[in-house]
């Protein structure tokens, strides 16, 4: 772990350690900052909260949101829930996987895009929906998807 990264993790830990039920806010603070929760952060978190490393590991792996590895520069989350399925989300996702040459949770070889499933973004009247780096998109067609991919690959 870089010393810079270790320092940033310590800052997140310090900011959250006195909150009631501090573990989730702490993990969010680390992932918001670094994009993931490095394995190497687990011992410091456990020590700060007087938990076992197993307990911290158990919480990180329980929740779909937390990642243990760095994602690509952009994260595309494709909704797979029923409302989006009714508007063709599964075939949209299949074409996207083909186009990017990766499976769900995978990252493209150029490091530009990580593809993740998500189960409802609350945009069910404008289905199919995707979220790109936290920005919601609705009525997603292949053209919209192409534009998202192009801009993800272009912007560094």
């Amino acid at each position: 772990m870089h010393s810079d990264q270790a320092q940033r993790i310590e800052q997140s830990i310090e900011r959250c350690r006195d909150l009631p039920g501090a573990l989730l806010p702490m993990l969010h603070a680390i992932q918001d900052d670094l994009g993931f929760v490095p394995e190497a952060a687990v011992p410091s978190i456990a020590k700060a909260l007087n938990l076992s490393r197993a307990e911290v590991h158990g919480v990180i792996t329980f929740y779909h949101h937390f990642r243990s590895h760095a994602p690509g520069r952009h994260v595309i989350q494709v909704c797979r829930a029923e409302a989006c399925q009714s508007m063709g989300a599964e075939s949209l996702l299949a074409r996207l996987r083909d186009r990017l040459g990766i499976d769900l949770h995978g990252t493209t070889t150029d490091g530009a895009i990580t593809l993740e499933p998500v189960y409802c973004l609350g945009n069910c009247a404008c289905a199919p929906a995707v979220m790109v780096d936290g920005e919601l998109r609705g009525r997603v067609t292949d053209d919209v998807m192409n534009e998202i991919i192009e801009s993800s690959r272009g912007a560094r």
């Binding site: 829930a81 409302a83 409802c120 609350g122 945009n123 069910c124 009247a125």
Partner: peptide
């Protein structure tokens, strides 16, 4: 934690 597909009234 409005997780049901087809809902957005909480949001």
């Amino acid at each position: 934690d409005e997780g049901d597909s087809g809902t957005f009234s909480d949001r």
